[in-house]
Design a protein around this nucleic acid. Sequence first.
DNA 1: CATTTCACCTGGTGGC
DNA 2: TGCCACCAGGTGAAAT
Length: 286
Amino acid sequence: MPELPEVETVARGLNQRVRGDRIIQAWFGKRPQTFKTPRARQAKGLAGLTILAVHRTGKHIVFELGAEAHLASEPAQNDATAAAAQWIVHLGMTGRLLVTAPDCPLAPHTHARLDLASGREVRFVDPRRFGRLEFRDLRNSSAAFEAPGAEPLTIGAREFAGLFRNRRLPIKAALLNQTLLAGVGNIYADESLFQAGIRPRRRTNRLTAAELERLRLALREILTYAIRLGGSSVSDYVDANGEKGFFQLEHCVYQRTGEPCRRCQTPIRRIELVGRGTHYCPICQR
DNA sequence: CATTTCACCTGGTGGC
DNA sequence: TGCCACCAGGTGAAAT
């Protein structure tokens, strides 16, 4: 399931491959749930725009789009002031965003295709349809997209502690709440709690300052390392080039129920928390 | 308001 | 081999 490292990997791949390209026209499927902006408005809005840059915010992929053609090397990354519009893609559980040749066979559950001036296509494929596509025309008073929560890679110690100090919910539930931190999902919540030695059910307001700081650093380290390995390919995740990631080989607890802890050999335990499978080591995490 | 539960989806899995 | 119940989980709406 795409979380911050997977979404970052996809966004980087897209930025490398389609930055500077121009959208000739766009096609959209008929499943209404996929479209946060009505499909007709997306198709009309995207046609003719140039891709200035592609980047990640939280779990969202943002295409910065310009009304005029720019040199691919010219626009600064994240230069929202130059952007006339944005195309915002959330991959949900099973979403894929791929750059393909036009004669590449159309995968089942393809919900969107962008025809590019270079002759290639950007395709959005999503069997389970938890993904979302949104178009924002910044020329029409729409605000630029902002993720609701803080960025786990750059948040400071004081702000991080402030997010959790006055809450009573389990720390794992807090990590999954995108309005607090943006980008952490089930895999990296479990992995970072293991690394920090904290049990998932612990109430956030009962965590010590030292524990919160361990958690902040664990998140940063794990997310950074996972990005370097191209993310975790559990389920059917692949990047914009169709390549799998390798961080799943590094998992210490996620989907390792009953297997020995890599640190102390105790069998990894699985519980259900806020409706999610949750994995931890009963010895290493307190 | 804070927190918890549930519906939305389909492919893969395991039991018989 | 085939059938089917069941499960995975990101998000937002509804319930508590």
